[in-house]
Amino acid sequence: MKPRESDKKSASLSISVLVSTGRHPITGRPGRADQDSRAVELAMNLQGGSVSLLHAGQPTEECKEALRGYLGMGIDRISLIEQSEHADITEVLTKTLKSSNPSLVLAGTKAEQGEGSGLLPFLLAESLGWSLVSGLVSIESVENGQATILQALPRGQRRRLKVRLPAIATVDESAERARQSAFGPARRGTIETISEASHIDETLASFEIKKARVRPKRLKIVKSSSARDRFKAAAAKSGGGGGQVLSDVSAQEGAEAIFKLLQEENVLKL
């Protein structure tokens, strides 16, 4: 509880989490969005933080049902900013965040519905003039108006960053898995609706949106002037063959051969 005592001006760290409605990856039923629920989990696990959830969208029954998934994680209330269909929510969220002025805003990397471009956090950071970090995995500490965080890199690697608050962070899908949503708290929690004027996103009308089709597999094209080479490439068996086989070697010789390969591939950290 140190940050609470040392940082008296902001009695506690206020965190806003922007949540969207998601779809179950297999059944397609509405529910929590995976990355957003991880963001909520991160915020709830942070010591001395007060968490508020924010959603902007159409106040349909389906949407409310999906939002109850977040309430089931042990959250009391969600603010739902009423917006019409195809609305651009950047402006209204900017306004809301400016007035509530949280130290940290968390959001998923990209939405599970609509365009899913992952652009909203960047637009908010630009219009609010706050710092932005992407691929957040965990928050290590928050002190003196700076947060030390871990950022996800490919292949499970992590990078430590220090970012000045207020900041907007997008949460990576390798962050800690969200806790289960419980039925009782999900029913008891309240969804507070706030009505705001909505700006219709006109560019969206020019988009042609359809069901995703399977991307064609890239063919292995062999560009060679000689027909023989092309035939050889087409008829070649995939994989196998050509490897170096060391039989009748001592364990030491074998180990050295492996060691050499590991060093060539640069995977060994000495």
Binding site: G240, V245, L246, A251, G254, A255
Partner: peptide, 18 residues
């Protein structure tokens, strides 16, 4: 057959040597 480098021998010994 698949491997790029194959050591034929006692696995335990090679691992220990490595």
């Amino acid at each position: 057959k698949r491997a790029d480098l194959a050591i034929i021998g006692d696995a335990e010994g090679v691992l220990e040597a490595l």
